[in-house]
């Protein structure tokens, strides 16, 4: 009710005060750990560069963020989705990540769209279905062809 009234009188919308609060939160997060945003991005890139030497990760869904309870309690929280590995016989990791992308497109979830939106389950399924066929899939250059190729094999 109050909300309705407020909105009717133009008080419900987000004013510059709320923007000020958000911006303050952002700058203080970095001020408090003495690490400016641009250095933080650099650090994230370096962390990721190390991890991809060992694991295949879904780079588009990596989240490395600072969580701050108050001035003296900050923690860096990282969520780095790892692409589920194929059997040991599988090709090298570069090929694997290519196949993961192809595979999920092949599932038809995101036809013609970037692979970003797929969740773990789809990726995993794709891997299972395609187990042992990596090389062929990886060689399928055109994404649109992915589904046909797979159907043909299924």
């Amino acid at each position: 009710m109050t909300n309705l009234l407020s909105r009717l009188f133009g008080r419900g919308k987000k004013g510059s005060g709320a923007t000020a609060k958000d911006r303050l939160r952002f700058v203080l997060q970095h001020d408090r750990i003495n690490l400016p945003p641009e250095r933080m991005e650099e650090m994230k890139r370096e962390i990721l560069a190390v991890i991809v030497k060992y694991l295949v990760v879904d780079k588009d869904r990596v989240e490395i963020d600072l969580e701050q309870r108050d001035r003296s309690h900050s923690k860096l929280v990282a969520e780095i989705p790892v692409v589920i590995n194929t059997p040991p016989s599988a090709a090298n990791s570069v090929n694997q990540s290519v196949s993961a992308a192809d595979g999920s497109d092949a599932n038809g979830a995101n036809k013609g769209v970037d692979t970003d939106g797929n969740d773990d389950a789809q990726d995993g399924d794709a891997e299972d279905d395609d187990a042992g066929k990596e090389t062929e899939d990886a060689q399928t250059e055109q994404r649109e062809n992915g589904e046909e190729t797979k159907d043909a094999k299924a």
Binding site: R11, K13, G15, G17, A18, A20
Partner: peptide
């Protein structure tokens, strides 16, 4: 503050 155009004391 009432118009949402300034940080409030709570903020």
């Amino acid at each position: 503050v009432k118009k949402g155009e300034m940080l409030s004391s709570e903020d």
